[in-house]
Amino acid sequence: MTKNNALGTNVIAQIGILVHDIEKTSQKYADFFGVEKPEWSLTDTLERAKTEFEGNPTDARAKLAFFDMGSLQLELIEPDQNPSTWRKHLDEHGEGPHHIAFFIEGMKEKIAIMESKQMPLLQKGEYTGGRYAYMDTFKDLKIIMELLENDN
């Protein structure tokens, strides 16, 4: 890792993939890798997740299924119809890769650093035990970057 690393890490923790049908796609992944199909979970409501998309509160929710693949996790995401980075990306680009994620410390600081590099915040929210932020790194890095910060 170099001293100029904006995130403080270069270890990819997760790859997020947008899908239309989480049941069907998670079964295909399970069959392909010979593993048990994970149960999907639903993201929290606006009141709990405090989800914001492009600076505005949103009722957006998504079904999530996680596959632990050794050193990283595959996350399948089936968004609802409410405004979100997931819905917008799925509508504009179809199914497939959405983001790569990194575990970071100091969410507000990291968001400020990214924004100073013309990589604006797209969406943020809370989950049990932490928070996430999707940064628009597509122009330079050709994918959205997710920052994950877990509470200690």
Rank of each mutant, 00 (worst) to 15 (best):
T2N: 02
K3C: 00
K3F: 01
N5P: 12
N5K: 03
N5T: 03
G8I: 11
T9P: 07
N10Q: 10
V11M: 08
V11I: 15
V11C: 06
A13L: 12
A13M: 10
Q14G: 02
Q14L: 07
Q14E: 15
Q14A: 04
I15T: 13
I17C: 14
V19Q: 01
V19G: 01
I22T: 10
T25R: 10
T25E: 13
T25W: 04
S26P: 15
S26W: 10
S26V: 06
Q27F: 08
K28E: 15
K28F: 13
K28T: 15
Y29F: 15
D31A: 09
F33P: 07
E36W: 05
E36G: 14
K37F: 09
P38W: 05
W40A: 04
S41W: 01
T43G: 01
T43I: 01
D44S: 09
D44H: 08
T45F: 10
L46D: 00
L46M: 01
R48Q: 11
R48I: 11
A49N: 07
K50N: 09
K50D: 07
T51S: 02
T51C: 03
E52P: 00
G55F: 00
N56V: 05
N56C: 02
P57S: 00
T58L: 00
T58M: 01
T58Y: 00
D59M: 03
A62S: 14
K63D: 03
A65W: 11
F67G: 10
D68F: 14
G70P: 12
S71G: 15
S71Y: 09
L72V: 11
L72P: 01
Q73V: 15
Q73L: 13
L74E: 10
E75G: 11
E75W: 08
E78K: 01
P79R: 00
P79E: 00
Q81V: 02
N82S: 06
P83D: 02
P83Y: 02
W86G: 02
K88L: 06
H89E: 13
H89S: 08
D91Q: 12
E92C: 03
H93L: 13
H93V: 07
H93M: 12
G94L: 10
G94K: 11
E95H: 10
G96N: 14
P97F: 15
P97L: 15
I100E: 08
F103Y: 15
I104K: 03
I104W: 02
I104T: 06
E105N: 12
G106T: 11
M107V: 08
K108T: 13
K110I: 05
A112D: 12
A112K: 12
M114V: 05
E115W: 04
S116A: 13
S116D: 12
K117I: 03
K117W: 04
M119V: 03
M119Y: 09
L122K: 11
Q123R: 02
Q123N: 04
Q123M: 13
G125Q: 02
E126C: 00
Y127F: 15
T128I: 01
G129C: 05
R131K: 10
R131E: 13
Y132F: 15
Y134Q: 06
D136T: 02
D136F: 04
K139T: 08
K139F: 05
D140C: 02
K142H: 15
K142R: 14
I143K: 05
I143L: 11
L148E: 11
E149Q: 12
E149G: 09
N152G: 06
